[in-house]
Amino acid sequence: MKSIKWMLIVATISILIAGCTDANEEDGKEAMGNNSPVTDDIEDAGTTDNSTTDSDSSTTDGNTDNSSAESLEDEQKQMAIDMLNDLVNDAKEGKVYRPDQGFIIGKTKRNDIVKAIGEPEEKIGGYDHYHGSMGNPSVAFKYDGKDVLEEARYFGTNVERQTNLGGITEENLIEQLGKPADSRRIESTGEKNIRYHLNDFELQFVIGKDGTPDHVNLKKWR
């Protein structure tokens, strides 16, 4: 009888131990299962952060590029306005803006101009034409019957024109010089002639189809 009792006790203990072991294994699995989604969340969060950073960086670069472009445009516009003001100040005294050799409308003779800058490359429609190069403007001069300078025509520069006549609009003219003496359409070319009265002289801005001056004429006021 004692042997049977001991056998029952041992069997009972074995069953209890086996049950505890199975319970521990299940707890371990549940713990591992609960930790797995946390790891996935961390990985997902890392991916999202990188994506956001790249997007923000791209946006910042775009804003920088736009700001640089606007700054360059503002600088070029200011250079064109400065050129306009210098041209107008010289015109009030009848001085040819470029080349800056002291040529005066109604005073300087053709021989003096030729000695200073040479013979013209072309003669077209009664004008001596000098072609621009390397930032130097194209100009043309017309003389009266006594070979005295009657009109100076300024075409501006071809290189970086936006800093010269190409950067000037009719609106800029009104802002800087006020209302013109008159304005008319040139039927033969479709251009617009905006004329300003400056002391004894007149300055004509011949506006092309692009809305900027094709050239500027300086002559005696009539």
Rank of each mutant, 00 (worst) to 15 (best):
T39S: 00
V88H: 07
K77F: 07
E30R: 08
S3T: 15
N199D: 13
E26C: 05
I15A: 12
K219Y: 04
M134L: 01
I42V: 05
P37V: 08
R98P: 07
E93C: 02
G156V: 15
V96E: 05
E30G: 09
D214W: 11
D61C: 02
N50D: 12
E93F: 00
T108W: 02
A45S: 01
H129D: 12
D90R: 00
S36I: 01
E122A: 14
K92Q: 04
D61N: 09
K115G: 04
E160K: 08
Y130N: 11
S14T: 14
E122D: 12
F141L: 06
E202Y: 12
I117N: 13
Q204E: 12
A80P: 13
N164A: 13
D40R: 04
S58C: 09
K220G: 12
N24W: 01
G106H: 15
M79K: 08
S67C: 10
K142F: 00
R161M: 07
N85R: 02
E191D: 14
I81A: 10
K109M: 13
A23T: 05
V38F: 06
N172E: 01
K115L: 03
S3V: 14
E202D: 10
S67R: 14
D65V: 13
D112E: 00
T48D: 05
F205E: 02
E26G: 06
G166C: 10
I168F: 01
L203A: 11
E171S: 07
R98D: 11
I117L: 09
A45Y: 03
T59W: 09
K220Q: 15
N164G: 11
E122C: 05
K109N: 11
T60G: 02
N158L: 10
N172S: 05
T39A: 03
Q78V: 04
G33F: 06
R110D: 08
E151T: 03
T39Q: 01
T60Q: 07
T47G: 04
D82K: 10
E25S: 01
N66C: 07
D86N: 13
P120W: 00
T163W: 12
D44E: 02
K77V: 02
F155Y: 15
I13N: 15
K77Y: 00
K115Q: 04
P120N: 04
K209C: 03
D147V: 09
E119Q: 14
D147P: 09
P120D: 07
N193T: 01
A181G: 08
V216D: 08
M7A: 15
P213Q: 12
L84Y: 09
G94E: 06
G211D: 07
R153W: 05
N193L: 00
Q78K: 03
S183N: 02
I104A: 03
T64D: 13
K5Q: 11
T12Y: 11
R195M: 00
I42L: 02
G118C: 12
D82A: 08
K123A: 06
G166F: 08
S3R: 13
I15N: 14
M32F: 08
E75F: 03
M79V: 08
I194N: 03
A45C: 02
S138V: 12
E119G: 14
T157D: 13
I174E: 05
E70L: 02
V38P: 03
S55L: 09
F201Y: 12
I174N: 03
H215F: 11
K209P: 06
Q76H: 00
G118E: 15
N34G: 04
G132D: 13
T12A: 15
D61G: 08
M7Y: 10
